[in-house]
Amino acid sequence: MKLTLQALWNEGTERLTLSGIGEAELDAKYLLFEAFHTDMVHFLMHRNDEVKDEDSVKRAVADYRAMIEKRSERVPIQHITGSREFMGLEFSVNEHVLIPRQDTETLVEQVLKDYKGRNPVVLDLCTGSGCIGVSLSILGGFSDVTLADISLEALQVAEKNARELMQARWNPVRVTAERSEEKPWRLELSAGLADGTEKKAGVQKITLAESDLFSAFAGGRERRFDVIVSNPPYIPSSVIEELEPEVRDHEPRLALDGRSDGLYFYRLLAAECGRYLNPGGTVYFEIGYDQGQAVSGLLQEDGFRGVCVYQDAPGLDRVVRGTMVL
């Protein structure tokens, strides 16, 4: 039997189905397109053609089968391909960061809506891949965004995403880096025009900081922000073992575990954010679908006003917003 793209797709679908993958056909197709660098149009045109006996094609077949094998072991497809689209932007991901999810776009979209035409100073706590903070910088044009995380491995992923997306968005630009030799680790990326025109270089800035919540901004390093956003760990510890293997076994536990009731980090954030906000500053937290009332109550207890909850596309509670009136 001749080997065709259609036969490879069928082969991959069968393998993933036997492994219990819910969307086996879709995943097999996506990995096939990735391995052969093709799309649906070209697949439909050539799916029944026998694949060529060439080294490059043989490598693509081998790569595809290797990716199918990884997926059958419940490795997330985004870890296999190394990327995930978020807010129309392509973000690199690996085992050190949460895979950006569409639910989180609700938070970014709300900040962009609330601050349209404005230029707030933004802090993204527990930044992970940087998908929230970098998206706000790129899509909102916010010129001073700080990405903070306790994990150096996560910050390395966020740095890669910030560099690549800054270069893609403000092309032609030069992205310069100023790395602090002091601890905690800190890096400032600035994007400016490369042609030396009258426009000032470094007009767009993304700072990355190693920080256990606000630790990098305390003790003589105080900064104030107009907006603080965060997607903190919020899954109760007891629930983590019940998650799908793709999440439980392959995404960082540090970014998932919200301690006994899932609210541990919201308590800390509600208590501390006011110290680092400018008057009238606002916080936006992603939450679990059943945490809207609890997190709203924590913010109100710590002096936030105008607290409200926003739903995601399926209609589930997803974001809590509150404003600190000092």
Rank of each mutant, 00 (worst) to 15 (best):
V134D: 04
V93P: 03
S83L: 12
I206V: 14
C273L: 09
G306M: 12
L326N: 08
E286G: 02
A168T: 11
R224V: 12
L5Q: 07
V41D: 12
L3R: 02
E272M: 10
P100N: 05
T127W: 13
A35R: 02
Q291S: 03
R259D: 15
P172W: 14
P172N: 04
L136I: 06
E69S: 11
F86Y: 10
E286P: 04
G220R: 04
A271C: 05
A62Q: 14
R65Y: 14
K70P: 04
G262H: 06
H46W: 15
G22C: 06
F36R: 00
R305G: 02
L44V: 09
R253T: 02
I287Q: 00
L254Y: 09
E11D: 12
E105L: 06
A148V: 12
Q291H: 07
F86W: 14
V57Y: 09
G292S: 04
E11T: 04
E210S: 08
L254Q: 06
V111F: 14
R169N: 08
I68Q: 04
G292F: 06
S143M: 12
D317K: 02
Q156E: 15
I80D: 06
Q291E: 09
R179I: 13
S129A: 12
G133K: 03
A194M: 12
Y276R: 00
D53P: 02
Q110P: 01
G262C: 08
N48I: 13
Y234T: 03
P245I: 11
F86I: 07
V157H: 03
K199H: 14
E182P: 02
I287T: 01
V283M: 05
V145H: 01
G219P: 05
P314M: 09
L298M: 13
